[in-house]
């Protein structure tokens, strides 16, 4: 199941629609890497609301994905981790250190606006 990636202004939004296999996850990583370069995106939102489990592999892949995108100049934020999923993740000892997180798409956009504005013009 491929993850659709939408372009919204200078941001890309990858909105996961169904449970992902490992291969889908790796595909998403490669697609995002391509599209960030192609569209010179300044921000990326990865919406994981529908994921019912984020296990060690998914965590590792997401973390790698975000760091890679950051290095390519796109601020990246993961949105929509559900309470039960977050709870299971921390029980497994999984964290997303150094990765931006937000409650949902709306918050994710606010997060990116803040991050990218800070670079554009210094705070008063």
């Amino acid at each position: 199941m491929q993850v659709p990636i939408l372009k919204q202004g200078s941001y890309l939004i990858a909105s996961i629609q169904a449970v992902l296999s490992d291969a889908d996850m790796l595909q998403l990583r490669d697609d995002l890497a391509d599209k960030v370069g192609q569209f010179r995106a300044r921000g990326v939102i990865i919406d994981v609301t529908v994921l019912d489990v984020i296990d060690s592999f998914a965590t590792r892949t997401l973390r790698g994905m975000v760091h890679m995108l950051n290095l390519r100049g796109a601020e990246t934020v993961i949105v929509g981790i559900q309470p039960e999923v977050a709870f299971a993740m921390v029980q497994l000892g999984l964290t997303l250190e150094g990765v931006g997180t937000a409650l949902d798409l709306e918050e994710g956009l606010a997060f990116l606006n803040q991050k990218t504005k800070v670079h554009a013009k210094p705070a008063k």
Partner: peptide, 12 residues
């Protein structure tokens, strides 16, 4: 610590 980290995963 887990509570703190789980909250952060949800963006809080």
């Amino acid at each position: 610590v887990q509570t703190v980290e789980a909250s952060r995963l949800m963006g809080a």
